[in-house]
Structures are given as structure tokens and as C-alpha cells.
Nucleic acid binder design. Structure first.
Length: 436
DNA sequence: TCTGGGGTCCTAGGACCC
DNA sequence: TCTGGGGTCCTAGGACCC
């Protein structure tokens, strides 16, 4: 059987961990630049505030309903996430970290809800973060099981009606866990909407609706050739998973990353080339450092520029890439390449709102060969410079030592007015406990 | 005034090869 | 007059996920 553990309202739970006064009170977390709502407490969901809504549209409502708002604090969330995964590794043998707040794991066939409920309590006790656990025969079904588990938690003994299914059976249910066995699957599949399934998004849901296919039961009753023809191999696999044949194994998605992206919206409109260079260099500094700590190099660099998506220049995104003559993780080389790309892509007429870098063609540093025409001495010098820079920044904090082009960062840096402290990753912001 | 960021996989079509 | 068949690799774009 495959289990899926998922943290409840993860970012909100992280904030509450250090603000216990906010338990049971409405709390929401914003995306970077304080743009949109990306995490909501149960109380906020009940108020009808949807996921992803722009903050400025509901600012008044937040004030009226006394919702506590936080800017996103990814340092904190990443650290709490790693603690949870660490605890989980002690609990089960095979875990696959799927996202910042989710992990799949294998569990024995006769696992009981009681066992999972106990595991859930231990994770909560050791980390302070509430989680839900769903178990089923396949990953896709485990996702559904987890969804049911989440609803069981909210209002005590809730049924599937909240996500569209009709949960049958009178058996005792544990809070926050669900083992979706054959009997229960047969009970829910004919009322479970396709759109609630992992892997069926907006487009596919619209298509299925147009074909009068609304529920998972109806989808599974379809002709296989029709599925393959209209939804491709992805749809075919999805149906296999739904019908109980496991296609995706635990551990499948654990492999080295193929690309790294760093992009950020600007706090205000940017028009001049120099500030764009500064922004791109900032992203390169971050990514190149990441490559170096992982002993990797990139063989392709892309710059991304985007005009304001709302207003006269609606949705204009430009990408320009170049393949490097030699794979590298050297900050200087990458900044130079980005500058060349920017000169080609830059348009003084466009009010820019966002810029970023994508590094791809990621390779292990030791397997890459050197170019015949490469200047060996320059390479060595750069390597020494990068090492020294990395060490200083590691010791004294990010960007202590940086390239001159990064002056200008303050011109585009995001707004983050409501950010909480780095309680667990920064000495100066650590919690103080007073014993009386 | 104000609308996020970081990924993966699949597919179709073009370039190129023998 | 008549101009094949079978591949691979790369890329851009779409759909989806958290």
C-alpha cells in the first residue's frame, strides 16, 4: 500500500508554531511581493476567501474579519519541512519527498487506521505541525484518501460530501487519517468528480464535462482507446492508477533536478537596462552558488523578462537562451552571458515587471570535460574567487560579498511588509524563552 | 498602487542522418 | 515522367502539480 502524508495549511501552521496565540484564529500567508493569498487557515477558508486571490482585492475584508496576514517566509517553511521529513524517515522505511509539505511512503498491506493515527500523533508531537495521512493501493488513490482524511479532521466525523463523494460505511473513523480500501473505493467512485483527481486539471475537466463524463466511475467506464486518443498516455496511466493498478512507484520522482529557476517580480515598474542587469545578476548569484554547493554545472542559460501582465502590455513574456560553449557554475561567466542576452532582448518601450534566470542542462561537475581552448589559469582563478566568496557569505550571511552589478537591487526588490522572523535559521531572530 | 515562484512530463514539428 | 523510408535529437508550447 502507498501512503501520503500532507501537512495541513502548511505555511499557516508554520507561522502558528511560533505564534500560538493564533490557533483557531483566521490566518493567511501571501505570495512573494505580498501579491496573492497562497495559504489559508480553516477559518479563512470558511470565510469564502479563495486560493490565489490577489491580496489588494480582499484587503478590506481581511481587516474587517481580523485576519492575521503574513508575507511568505520560505526560510522558515523549508526548515520546518525538513524537520517533518526527518521525523517521517524514522517512522517508515521508504519515503519520497514530493513537495515542501507532502511525502509518499510504502506501508504494509494490513495497515490499520489506528496505526496511522498513532503515527500522525507522533509527527504532530515532534514537530508541532498537524498532518493528514491517506493510504491506498496507488499514488493517485492515496491522494484521494488524503483528501478524505483532511475532511474527517475539519468537523470531526465529516463525510465525503464536502469533496463531492458519498462516503459509506458506519465503521469507526480516526481523525485525520483514511485507509481507502476496495469497499470504500467502490462506495465513493461514482460520486467523486473527475476534477478532484490528481492530474486532472482545468482543461481536462472542461473536456471531460463536454463529453458528459463527470465522475471517476464514468471515466473508468470509458473505452480505453477513447482515453488514449483524447487524453494521451498520461490519461491512460491515470485511469490505470484509478482502477487500482500501480503505475507510479514510491521513489519515482527522486532524481537530480534538470533545471533551476530564479525569478522575481519587481516591487515597481522597471524600464532601465542597468536595473535589469542588476536583477538578473542577483538571480545568477543565487543559482551559481546553488550549483557550486551541489558540485554541478549548467550548460544552458536563459533569461526571462516579463512586462506588466495587467494593463496595456498584457501578458508579455520573453525568453532568450544560449548554450554555453562550456558548462560552468562560475558567477562571472554566467553574468556575462546574461548581459549579452539582455542586450538582444531588451526593449526600452516595455514596462518590465519581472525578470529571472533559468539554468538547464545540469551536469555533475566531475563528469564534464574541459574545452581545448579554455584558459586554464582563468578557470582556476575564478574557481578560487568563487570558493572564497562562498565561504565568506556562508560565515557572515548571504550577499556580504557580492558583485558590483548588484548595487541596484534595492530598486526592484519586492515588498515584504508582513514577514515573520526566521525563528529557526537565524541566531539574531531566534525565540527567547523567559523562565520566571 | 497592488495580481507568486519553481518544477515535471508529453507532444508535435523541424532539422538532420543514412 | 518518375523523387522513400526509417530513424534520432532538439525545441517550443501546453498541461499539470505544489
Amino acid at each position: 500500500m502507498i501512503g501520503l502524508i500532507d501537512c495541513n495549511n502548511f505555511f499557516v501552521s508554520c507561522e502558528r508554531l511560533f505564534r500560538p496565540d493564533l490557533q483557531k484564529k483566521p490566518v493567511a500567508v501571501l505570495s512573494s511581493n505580498d501579491g496573492c493569498i497562497v495559504a489559508r487557515s480553516q477559518e479563512v477558508k470558511k470565510l469564502g476567501i479563495p486560493m490565489g486571490v490577489p491580496y489588494f482585492q480582499i484587503k478590506n475584508m481581511c481587516k474587517k474579519e481580523k485576519i492575521t496576514i503574513f508575507s511568505s517566509n520560505f526560510q522558515l517553511y523549508r526548515d520546518i519541512s525538513s524537520r517533518i521529513m526527518h521525523v517521517l524517515k524514522e517512522e517508515v522505511q521508504n519515503i519520497e519527498v514530493y513537495s515542501i509539505d507532502e511525502a509518499f511512503f510504502n506501508v504494509h498491506t494490513n495497515v490499520t487506521e489506528k496505526e496511522m493515527a498513532e503515527m500522525r500523533m507522533r509527527v504532530m508531537q515532534k514537530t508541532g505541525i498537524p498532518v493528514s495521512i491517506g493510504v491506498a493501493h496507488t499514488k493517485t488513490r492515496a491522494k484521494i484518501a488524503n483528501n478524505i482524511a483532511k475532511h474527517r479532521m475539519r468537523d470531526g466525523r465529516l463525510t465525503m460530501s464536502a469533496i463531492g463523494g458519498g462516503e459509506g460505511g458506519e465503521q469507526e473513523q480516526e481523525e485525520g487519517v483514511c485507509i481507502l480500501d476496495m469497499t470504500m473505493w467502490e462506495n465513493i467512485k461514482n460520486t467523486l468528480p473527475c476534477g478532484n483527481v490528481w492530474g486532472i486539471g482545468r482543461q481536462t475537466t472542461a473536456f471531460l464535462t463536454s463529453e458528459k463524463i463527470e465522475t471517476v466511475g464514468q471515466l473508468l467506464a470509458c473505452d480505453r482507446a477513447f482515453i488514449k486518443q483524447s487524453l494521451g498516455v498520461v490519461g491512460e496511466r491515470l485511469c490505470m492508477e484509478l482502477s487500482g493498478t500501480s503505475i507510479y512507484r514510491v521513489g519515482d520522482s527522486v532524481h537530480t533536478q534538470e533545471s533551476y529557476t530564479s525569478t522575481r517580480s519587481f516591487g515597481k515598474i522597471i524600464r532601465d537596462k542597468e536595473t535589469l542587469i542588476s536583477a538578473l545578476s542577483y538571480h545568477i548569484t543565487h543559482l551559481a552558488e546553488k550549483l557550486r554547493t551541489q558540485s554541478e554545472v549548467a550548460s544552458k542559460i536563459s533569461i526571462v523578462l516579463q512586462g506588466s501582465r495587467y494593463g496595456a502590455f498584457s501578458h508579455r513574456e520573453d525568453i532568450l537562451s544560449t548554450t554555453l560553449t562550456m558548462s560552468t557554475n562560475d558567477t562571472t561567466t554566467l553574468i556575462r552571458e546574461a548581459q549579452k542576452l539582455l542586450i538582444k532582448l531588451y526593449d526600452s518601450e516595455i514596462p518590465y515587471k519581472k525578470a529571472g534566470i533559468i539554468l538547464s542542462g545540469i551536469l555533475r561537475e566531475e563528469v564534464t570535460s574541459r574545452s581545448l581552448f579554455d584558459d586554464h589559469n582563468t578557470h582556476e582563478d575564478r574557481s578560487v574567487l568563487n570558493t572564497v566568496t562562498d565561504n565568506i557569505n556562508k560565515k557572515f550571511g548571504a550577499h556580504t560579498l557580492h558583485f558590483g552589478v548588484l548595487y541596484g537591487t534595492e530598486k526592484w526588490k519586492e515588498n515584504k511588509r508582513l514577514v515573520s522572523k526566521e525563528y529557526t535559521t537565524k541566531w539574531s531572530e531566534i525565540c527567547t524563552v523567559k523562565a520566571i
